[in-house]
Measured scan of single mutants.
Amino acid sequence: TTVKLGDIKVTFDNPEKAKKYAQKLAKIYQLTVHVHGDTIHVK
């Protein structure tokens, strides 16, 4: 599962960890989390 934020891409083996990371980023940057299959976009 890949978390994308602009040019930053972080890949996790564990989808749950990816989701938590995405939510953490979203909170920090006051953005929202969008899940598209294996990719989680923070924008």
Score class of each variant (00 low, 15 high):
Thr1Ser: 05
Thr1Lys: 05
Thr1Leu: 08
Thr2Asn: 05
Thr2Gln: 06
Val3Phe: 03
Val3Arg: 03
Lys4Tyr: 14
Lys4Asp: 05
Lys4Asn: 06
Lys4His: 11
Lys4Met: 14
Lys4Glu: 07
Lys4Trp: 15
Leu5Gly: 02
Leu5Asp: 02
Leu5Glu: 01
Gly6Val: 05
Asp7Trp: 15
Ile8Pro: 01
Ile8Thr: 07
Ile8His: 14
Ile8Leu: 12
Lys9Asp: 06
Lys9Val: 13
Lys9Ala: 11
Val10Leu: 11
Val10Met: 10
Thr11Leu: 12
Thr11Gln: 09
Asp13Glu: 10
Asn14Thr: 10
Pro15Ser: 07
Pro15Ala: 11
Pro15His: 11
Pro15Ile: 11
Pro15Asp: 05
Glu16Val: 09
Glu16Trp: 10
Lys17Gln: 12
Lys17Ser: 11
Lys17Ile: 10
Lys17Met: 12
Lys17Phe: 09
Lys17Trp: 10
Lys17Asn: 10
Ala18Thr: 01
Ala18Met: 03
Lys20Ala: 13
Lys20Leu: 11
Lys20Asn: 08
Tyr21Pro: 00
Tyr21Asp: 00
Tyr21Met: 04
Ala22His: 01
Ala22Phe: 04
Gln23Gly: 04
Gln23Glu: 12
Lys24Thr: 09
Lys24Trp: 15
Lys24Leu: 14
Lys24His: 13
Lys24Ser: 07
Leu25Asp: 00
Leu25Val: 06
Ala26Ile: 04
Ala26Lys: 04
Lys27Met: 11
Lys27Pro: 00
Lys27Cys: 15
Ile28Asp: 04
Ile28His: 08
Ile28Trp: 12
Ile28Ala: 08
Tyr29Arg: 03
Gln30Met: 10
Gln30Lys: 12
Leu31His: 03
Leu31Ile: 04
Leu31Asn: 01
Thr32Trp: 07
Thr32Gly: 06
Thr32His: 07
Val33Leu: 11
Val33Met: 09
Val33Asp: 00
Val33Ser: 02
Val33Asn: 00
Val35Lys: 05
Val35Gly: 02
Val35Phe: 11
Val35Asp: 07
His36Ser: 12
His36Leu: 13
His36Val: 14
Gly37Lys: 05
Gly37Met: 05
Gly37Ser: 04
Asp38Pro: 06
Asp38Trp: 08
Thr39Arg: 03
Thr39Pro: 02
Ile40Val: 06
Ile40Leu: 08
Ile40Lys: 02
Ile40Cys: 03
Ile40His: 02
His41Cys: 13
His41Glu: 14
His41Lys: 05
His41Trp: 13
Val42Trp: 04
Val42His: 01
Val42Ile: 11
Lys43Cys: 15
Lys43Gly: 14
